[in-house]
Amino acid sequence: MVYSPAAEKYNGEIGEVVLGTDGVKVGGQKVLPFQGFEGEAGNHPIIAIEVLDVEPEGWPEALVEAIGQDVLGDPVAWAKKAQDEWGADAVCLSLVGTDPNAADRSPDEAAETAKAVSDAISMPLIVYGSGNVEKDAEVFQRVGEVLQGANAVIGPVKEDNYKTIAAAAMGFGHVVAGETPIDVNMAKQLNILMTNLGLPADKILVDPSTGALGYGLDYTFSVMERDRLSALLQGDKVLQMPIINNMAKEAWKSKEAKVSAEEEPAWGDAAERGILWEVLTGVALLMGGADVLIIRHPKAADVLHTTIGLLAG
């Protein structure tokens, strides 16, 4: 008798979403993540390098060194470096400077930065706001407008500002990243609300909210797992969108990624530790079904690319 492995029966597939203007696609899976032996495993997940609109403060020395002090205050140069030297698949411009509690940069200033970064690179651009719902709504009306034609990803879109940002995305032809707080049903609700407005499903990425390794990663993982099971096994149409994980800020906020070897000698080399923290967070998210990972460290990008290659066979 010949052994035949039990095959999972799938009742749905993840839709494909085109990012940027160069034909980069994510999603398209007809099986659970990396289960290529069961069927069509879809597009490979992509790695986006995070670039800040203002010079970051308090980042670990080793990370600053790896990125290069010279580009940290210059988002355009930073983005170009990510594209040309680090092999990133995409750039994520984080508009942290627009936060009213930080530098409170204006929507016009943010739009100017976004436009400059977009013009400097040929790969897909993701633009994340500060997370302040009112400010993000203002910012993305302007940013969406100046990026018209770039087919960028804009987010995070939340329940309280989806109408404005999704309208900007529809008007100027962008993809949105809809963020909900680690809850399958909330993710479904936001997707229904956005599609009710007329935003096509292939213009939506799901941002499930991300916790880093040791800081809630398990919650994110299980909610992503449930997202994918609903989408693929139960055929739930409103969850059949690719997943984006805005993980860099979380991974690098953790004590383990930041503390120096002098402070915690038993924890080993700080530079390597930071990379490992980001990589391990990323690998777990890939297993959970991530399609886009937003990360910071060039070396982590390398390792994650290799991992994706190995997993995808």
Partner: peptide, 15 residues
């Protein structure tokens, strides 16, 4: 709880 949360929508998250 899961059923409850999925029904916290009009009419339901599973249309």
């Amino acid at each position: 709880m899961n059923r409850y949360v999925s029904a916290l929508f009009l009419p339901h998250t599973d249309t």
